[in-house]
Amino acid sequence: MLQSFFQWMQGLPFSAWMLEETWASPIIQCAHLVALVAFAGAVLVVDMRLLGRGLIKTPLNQLAREMDRWMIWSFVALFVTGAPQVLSTALKQYYSPFFWWKMQIVIIGLLFNFTIRRRVAFAEEGSLGHWPKVVGFLSIGMWTGVSVYARLIGLLS
């Protein structure tokens, strides 16, 4: 069922247009990379603070609230620029293990962010013991994993 869905995506006129239009893929890939940098920065500023590094003179919840919108909007940009790439190379993605590993970590990362990470980052500082460090470490690990698998889809699939 999933395979036929990916075959359907690959057969869409938009996918054909993406593949035929010389500049479509490069422009979208470049925009995706710029969005990735914005997303990574927003995640790192808070995660480093969770780890007790970075902007330690600024209250954690203030920093987390400020970076939250940058993280959300850059993720939206990542999705908007990522979806056309998946559509146009749907079968390549379907047969790549890295694509599925990436998507699994993206979903876990999003759930983790909107539940545990957000709760820890917005909580009163010093009330959660070592949990902020654990959360910061896991968050950096997950999003690094997403970047690694994303890069490997193009290189090893």
């Binding site: 990574a40 927003a42 890069r151």
Partner: peptide
């Protein structure tokens, strides 16, 4: 090398951007 290049770019360019 290319994967490490991209991840380290995120660390550098991500922080510089903010």
């Amino acid at each position: 090398m290319l994967t490490i290049h991209v991840v380290s770019m995120c660390l550098f360019a991500g922080l510089i951007a903010y």
